[in-house]
């Protein structure tokens, strides 16, 4: 295992950066990881989200996962909550949609209307 001292240094840098920019957690992403989600590619979607945050050096977004949401036909499902805005539930977020989702919604602040799951009546 890489050294825990190295991790300690990374933590200190991250804390310093957060202190300087005054940033906390600006947005949250939740990936549905039930059996249905995994079968539809949710693991790869989440891995792509993490990779994108890493590459774009986005520091104020947390990513967590949850179980089946009962909307299996829309998997992979990803929820995004930016600041105080409403939680938005997206359907069919495969790996290919991840960069645009992050670019437009997380960075640009504009939800991807076409990908939002519309509650059926």
């Amino acid at each position: 295992m890489k050294s825990l001292e190295e991790l300690q240094k990374i933590k200190e840098r991250a804390l310093q950066r957060r202190k300087l920019s005054g940033e906390g957690t600006r947005a949250r992403i939740i990936v549905a990881m039930g059996t249905c989600g995994i079968a539809a590619g949710a693991r790869d979607t989440m891995a792509a989200i993490l990779k994108t945050l890493e590459e774009k050096k986005i520091t104020d977004v947390t990513v967590t996962q949850t179980g089946c949401m009962g909307l299996c036909e829309y998997e992979p499902i990803v929820q995004v909550k930016v600041g105080e805005e409403d939680l938005i539930t997206y359907g069919h977020i495969d790996v290919n949609r991840v960069p645009e989702l992050i670019e437009k919604h997380l960075i640009g602040g504009e939800p991807m209307e076409a990908w939002i799951i519309q509650p059926s009546s």
Partner: peptide
């Protein structure tokens, strides 16, 4: 062997694991 208790002990609650530098560390580990 990877034991996340060791990692979380260092990180505490102040920095999210999705911080890009921490992600890179975990990935390379």
């Amino acid at each position: 062997v990877l034991d996340t208790r060791e990692i979380r002990q260092v990180l505490g609650d102040d920095v999210p694991l999705s911080d890009p530098e921490i992600l890179a560390f975990l990935r390379s580990t």
